[in-house]
Amino acid sequence: MSGNGNAAATAEENSPKMRVIRVGTRKSQLARIQTDSVVATLKASYPGLQFEIIAMSTTGDKILDTALSKIGEKSLFTKELEHALEKNEVDLVVHSLKDLPTVLPPGFTIGAICKRENPHDAVVFHPKFVGKTLETLPEKSVVGTSSLRRAAQLQRKFPHLEFRSIRGNLNTRLRKLDEQQEFSAIILATAGLQRMGWHNRVGQILHPEECMYAVGQGALGVEVRAKDQDILDLVGVLHDPETLLRCIAERAFLRHLEGGCSVPVAVHTAMKDGQLYLTGGVWSLDGSDSIQETMQATIHVPAQHEDGPEDDPQLVGITARNIPRGPQLAAQNLGISLANLLLSKGAKNILDVARQLNDAH
């Protein structure tokens, strides 16, 4: 009898209710805020589980004197976190989706994509230029951005401005803007500013005609071990179906173009009346040469937790077992079709030249 009692006690200790789920994140304040929001949602869904947040620095956090596009290494903000995932030191990792490459290392998958916040870019102005827009900034004003995508589009749109690289986390960039006289304004992701509670610093939100956004911008991705079915089931509740389908289309477009950090590629997606609209573009580094096109596809946005595919093969690095396969494939095909259209119009040449120029500098 006593033996059975011990077995029952052991089973209770090993039951999922007692389990601590370890969540990996970057150390920056924004990353911690984003991770806290994901953990809060998981806690609400699984009140019996405990969650421990483990923060670590990544290569991208450490190399702050070089433009991201020049470092010449993929997975700048993800490699150390993936290493911890691989060694079973954490069970899942919360990322900004735009930091996750469209091809993940073997053994990993994006197990959830959370509801997207505003994906557009924002302009934050130096205190002396508050009330201005990019259009009304004085001639030769210097605007800071760490992104080739932003610089290429904005140089084309605002030729009277000069664009220079600015690195560091959000706090560091804002301090550089406010305390030094080098920059009249800087460009940042609206979602990051909003998550930090800095709505009052948003001086201008850039519309798609001015600057399309990065693939996955404004959404959070939760990376897990691809074979860890328990954790895949656990994080599945975080999937937002519309965000998922938009981001599958965007990531398929980028992957098929073979774009990345070192080339200016941008997108804009919208879901309306059962249609998914995808606009994508590529630019030369100075913005003088560009190709942009829009395509659409009829896609039914499923309700969360309709029964999805059981075999769960990944699409552009994403596993969404609780979302039907048909809409996911339709979104992926839309991204591939748009990429093929741009490639047929000469996108590869623009991107190759951009890559060579970026590598040469």
Rank of each mutant, 00 (worst) to 15 (best):
L97A: 10
S69Y: 10
T319C: 12
R225T: 07
T102R: 04
L343P: 05
M196K: 05
E250V: 01
A44D: 09
V215L: 07
K132C: 11
S184G: 09
L285N: 15
V130L: 07
L154Y: 06
I21Y: 09
V282Y: 03
P101K: 01
L104G: 08
V90P: 01
K176I: 11
A112Q: 07
M295E: 07
G260R: 01
S141D: 07
F108R: 14
H120V: 09
L134E: 04
T172H: 06
A354V: 05
Y46G: 06
S262L: 01
V38C: 09
I186K: 03
P138H: 09
V224A: 07
L285P: 14
Y213S: 04
A67S: 01
E250T: 03
I186H: 07
P208N: 01
T319K: 05
E86F: 08
V282H: 05
G346S: 01
T102Y: 15
K74M: 03
E82A: 12
L30A: 01
I350G: 01
F108I: 14
E242D: 12
G144F: 01
M196A: 12
I187W: 01
A360C: 01
A303G: 04
E293D: 14
V222Q: 01
V142E: 11
T35K: 01
M212F: 15
V202W: 05
T66D: 05
H95R: 01
T190A: 13
Q328E: 13
R32K: 08
K176W: 10
D359E: 11
P106D: 11
K176N: 08
M212Q: 03
M212S: 09
R149Y: 07
A226I: 07
T145W: 06
N171H: 10
D307Q: 04
V215N: 01
L238A: 01
H305C: 14
R26Q: 01
C247W: 04
C114V: 06
D240A: 08
R201E: 01
E80M: 10
A270N: 04
A303S: 10
G192M: 05
P208Y: 14
I110H: 04
H256F: 15
T25W: 01
G218W: 04
H126K: 13
I248H: 01
C247R: 01
A152N: 07
V215W: 01
V353G: 07
F51A: 07
G317T: 07
A185G: 15
V224T: 15
P105L: 08
C114N: 10
N349M: 11
E242A: 14
I231H: 01
G216L: 01
F253P: 04
L30C: 11
G280F: 01
T25V: 06
S37D: 05
G218V: 05
V235E: 06
A266S: 01
S290G: 12
T78K: 12
L137W: 01
L254R: 03
S75V: 06
R167H: 07
H300P: 10
L81C: 08
Q328H: 11
